[in-house]
């Protein structure tokens, strides 16, 4: 990195130093509670009070009050009491009303003995199976994979800021192999920071992180405009370096989806792995769709005129600048 900085011209080095200073200043802002952050999922907590008997309550209430838990057939649900008898809390779980306003909800189960369990239900994965010991039940592990891969796909496809950044990179990088390298660098970087943030090794307060993510998109927009004017900027020259640097930030953003779930430590590494796989699937799908659309436009000769070539860059930059201002 130092060699890279040394190789830069005076103007670029000043820019990099300014960017680092801005990032440092952003990180210096003290962390605050995230009460303004809309709950991304509803969580129902079930505490075992006697053999097969539980008390249930929402620890994170649903946005839609009509959301209702659906328990295994042998369990009698008379809020707040749940009686599953001798068979205990095993069988299929679901939520009625999922998908309209909230796409993910979770059961957190605290048995009298043994570790707490978490079962995530999503619109894409509406039924999960509760088992006594997921650590030994292959079906439970498959369920975990299914749930978190879907959650990862869901998260990236709803994260329009991340998609806009990737779109900017695709717009910026013309060479096919450089694009592969750039997207790979972004992927590696956000995987690293996602893991680090999920395990609590690093952390950044919400507001400056959001603002910096928006700023990263503005930066890419500016670089596209410069490239259209014939000036090869930093991102056009070293797109993979820029993608890696900003990918670290975006990975911290991805971590939100996992850190708010309260997943037990025993399943966290696997949840993280499957979630990241889901994110990559969603990102790759987005990249392929964009590339396919670019191909299609060329095929029907529907390309922007010379004067309009910078419009997408201005659109990307303007949207991101708006987000930046809102978040700051």
């Amino acid at each position: 990195m130092i060699g890279f900085l040394q190789g830069l011209g005076g103007g670029r080095r000043r820019f990099m130093l300014f960017a680092m200073a801005a990032l440092s200043a952003a990180f210096l802002v003290p962390a605050r509670p995230t009460s303004a952050h809309e709950a991304s999922m509803a969580v129902m907590v079930l505490r075992e009070v006697g053999p097969g008997r539980y008390l249930g309550q929402w620890s994170m209430p649903p946005i839609d009050e009509r959301l209702r838990p659906i328990f295994p057939e042998h369990c009698a649900w008379d809020p707040p009491e749940l009686d599953c008898g001798e068979r205990g809390f095993v069988g299929t779980l679901s939520f009625m009303g999922l998908g309209s306003k909230q796409s993910v909800a979770m059961f957190r189960v605290f048995p009298l003995e043994g570790p707490a369990q978490a079962y995530t239900v999503s619109a894409a994965n509406p039924i999960v199976t509760a088992a006594r010991d997921p650590g030994r039940d292959i079906g439970a592990w498959l369920n975990l994979a299914d749930t978190y891969v879907n959650l990862g796909i869901d998260h990236i496809l709803r994260g329009i800021d991340h998609l806009l950044f990737v779109l900017g990179l695709i717009w910026l990088v013309r060479d096919r192999w450089m694009l592969v390298r750039t997207i790979t660098a972004f992927t590696v970087a956000h995987s690293l920071s996602l893991a680090a943030a999920t395990f609590g090794w690093v952390g950044v307060p919400e507001r400056p992180l959001n603002a910096t993510i928006a700023l990263s998109i503005v930066f890419v927009g500016v670089e596209i405009v410069k490239l259209q004017r014939g000036q090869v900027g930093l991102a056009a020259r070293y797109p993979w370096v820029v993608a890696f640097a900003f990918g670290l930030l975006h990975g911290l953003g991805f971590a939100t989806a996992l850190t708010t779930l309260g997943i037990p430590q025993t399943t966290l590494p696997f949840a993280l792995l499957f979630f990241n796989i889901g994110v990559e699937i969603g990102q790759l799908a987005f990249v392929f769709v964009v590339l396919a659309l670019i191909w299609a436009h060329h095929r029907v000769e529907a390309t922007l005129p010379r004067w309009g070539a910078v419009l997408p860059a201005y659109a990307i930059g303007s949207i991101a600048a708006f987000w930046f201002l809102v978040r700051v």
Partner: peptide
């Protein structure tokens, strides 16, 4: 270490 919460 601090809590990481972000989604734009």
């Amino acid at each position: 270490p601090a809590n990481a919460h972000a989604h734009l």
